[in-house]
Amino acid sequence: MIEVRALTKRYGRTLAVNDLSFQVRPGCVTGFLGPNGAGKSTTIRVLMGLDAPSSGEALVAGRRYAELRRPLHEVGALLDANAVHGGRSAFDHLLSLALTNGIGRRRVAETLEQVGLAGVARKRVGGYSLGMRQRLGIAAALLGDPGILLFDEPVNGLDPEGVRWIRELLRGLAAAGRTVLVSSHLMSEVERTADRLVIIGRGRLIEDATVRDLADRFRTGVLVRSPRAAELANALESSGASVAAEPDGGLSVTGLEVAGIADVAARHAIPLHEVTARRASLEDIYLLLTASSVEHRSRDPRPAR
C-alpha cells in the first residue's frame, strides 16, 4: 500500500507537487501518468525518502520511508537506470546494495539470473546498453523481494522484447499480491499493463480511476450500420436517441446503448449489419485530460494549408 496525502513539494518558487493525494492498492498495477514535468518523479523521490515534502506526507507500508529499518525488504524502486557507477560490475553494484540490508550473495546471483543478466554479471556496467541497465535497475528493485514496487519510466529505451518482458514482470508481481506503481508520460506504455490509473498534471491530481471506468466515462456513442439506415434513424429518434449520419453511411447514435438500439431495430424488423460501442482511445482521453496542464506545449505539427 502506498498513500500520498495532501503532498506538496516546492523547489524554491517552483511548485512541483501541489496538494496531491492518492492511494496505490496491492494486487494490481497502477499507472502513474502525467506529461513531462507533472511531478511524477518528485512524488516518487518523496515516497523514497530522498526529498523531504514541503507539507503533507507520503507513506509506504503505512510509514515514512526513512523509518524503515531494512527498506529493501519492503520497498523496491527503479529510479534512474543510468544512475550507476560505470566502472563497477553488475554483481558488485548489487552486492553493495544487498549487504546494507543483510541480503547475501546468493540472492544477488539469483536476481541477476531473474532479469537475464547472469551472463554479464562480472562485466563493467559502463559497457551495458540502456536496456541492460534497465534490467539491472529492476534487479536492484527486486533484491529484497519487497511487497511494494515503484518503477519510474521502466520501459524507457527498451526494445519491444524488453517492453514485453517488463509488462509480464509487472503483471506477475501484481498478480502475486504486490503493490506496483509504474510511472510514464505515455499512455501507450501503461494502458496494456495497468489496471488503475493515477493521472497528474502540474503537480495536481487530474484523475484516479480504473482503466475500465475511465474508458466507459469517455464513451462516444454507438456506430450502427443498416441497409435501411434512414428508416432506422427515424425509429431510433422516436425512441429518444439522437442520431447523426456519418459520411460513409453509418449512423452515430447517442442516448441509447447497444442493447436498446438492437431492441428498436428488432421491433421494426430492420436488419443491422453493425452495432459497435465506440470508446475514445485511452490515449485520446489522456491527452484531453492533460491538455490544460502540459508544461511545454508544441505548436500544431501539421503544415499550414
Binding site: M48, G49, L50, A66, L72, L79, A83
Partner: peptide
C-alpha cells in the same frame, strides 16, 4: 556525479 547516491540512500535511508 552518477546519481547512484539516490540508490545508496534508498538502501540506507537514515
Amino acid at each position: 556525479a552518477t546519481g547512484a547516491i539516490r540508490l545508496s540512500l534508498t538502501a540506507v535511508p537514515r
